[in-house]
Amino acid sequence: MNHLLHLDRTLDELDPPRWTLPAADATRLVRTVHELRRVRLGELGPADLRTLVAQRVALPYVLPLAVRRLLDEPLIDAYFYEGDLLLTVVGAPAADWALLPDLSARLCAVVTALPEAAVAGLPHGGAEALGHFVARPEPLR
């Protein structure tokens, strides 16, 4: 988790170029993502991570932070429902996971250890999303 060494830095610092301020008529989501890029990584909460992963922003930096949270509490309720961060993270593109094979393997182990009842309690399609993540072929190193 080398990217975790930068917890005192922001995505604007680590993932150039710095983003300009959003347009005056930007949506709340766009304004939020722009604001989150200026927050130190160590200060990002589960809801912030869910938003950044869902919007595919700086995933080489954000995925390690999200996985670190999920290793401790896989079904954390980040914003919408129990397990929402997990389902968002496993939905990240395979190409981004290919850059983080160790993290992918650690998260797969967490997912496969989830109780069947917990997985069944996820929203429609949740169990399938977890199954697809675990069944993905390992990237070539």
Rank of each mutant, 00 (worst) to 15 (best):
T27H: 00
P64L: 13
E138A: 15
H34T: 15
P22N: 04
L59Y: 02
L107E: 02
L87K: 08
V30G: 10
H3M: 10
D77K: 13
P60W: 14
V90H: 09
L70A: 06
A24Q: 12
W19A: 14
G83F: 05
V89C: 03
P46N: 14
A117N: 10
A95M: 10
L52N: 06
R136D: 03
L86M: 01
A92E: 03
L107W: 00
A24D: 14
D84Y: 02
L114T: 00
T20C: 08
G121D: 03
L63Q: 07
P93S: 08
D72Q: 11
A95C: 13
V30A: 12
A47M: 11
L122P: 02
T88E: 13
F80K: 11
E13A: 06
L63Y: 00
H6F: 15
V134R: 04
G45A: 15
E43C: 00
V119Y: 01
V111Q: 07
T32Q: 02
Q55K: 11
L59S: 08
P139R: 09
D96T: 11
P139Q: 13
E116C: 02
L41T: 11
R9I: 12
Y81L: 01
D8L: 09
D84R: 02
A135G: 05
L122G: 06
P16M: 11
A135N: 09
Q55A: 06
Y61W: 10
D102P: 04
R141Q: 10
G125T: 08
Q55H: 01
A105T: 08
A98E: 00
L11E: 07
R106D: 12
F133S: 00
L11Q: 04
L52H: 02
P22D: 05
D96L: 00
L14I: 09
E116A: 09
P137R: 15
V89E: 05
R106I: 00
A113D: 07
P137W: 01
Q55F: 04
L63V: 06
P115H: 09
G91T: 10
Y79T: 09
A78R: 06
P17T: 12
A58H: 09
P64R: 01
D48F: 05
R31V: 12
E35P: 10
A78W: 08
D12L: 07
W19M: 14
R37A: 02
R136S: 11
M1L: 12
P123H: 13
A105V: 07
D25I: 10
D8R: 11
T20A: 14
G131S: 01
G45C: 07
V57L: 03
G45D: 15
A26K: 04
G91N: 14
A118P: 02
G121A: 06
R18M: 06
A95Y: 13
R9K: 15
R50K: 11
L85K: 05
A135C: 11
A120S: 03
P64F: 07
C108Y: 02
R9G: 03
T20H: 06
A58E: 14
E116F: 07
A95R: 15
H132Q: 14
Y61L: 13
E116G: 10
G121L: 03
L7F: 01
L14H: 01
L107F: 01
S104F: 06
Q55L: 02
D15P: 01
V90R: 05
V39L: 12
L70I: 04
V30R: 07
A47R: 08
T20I: 05
T51V: 10
E116T: 07
E73Q: 05
M1K: 08
V53E: 04
L4M: 09
P64C: 12
W97M: 11
W97A: 13
W19Q: 13
G42Y: 10
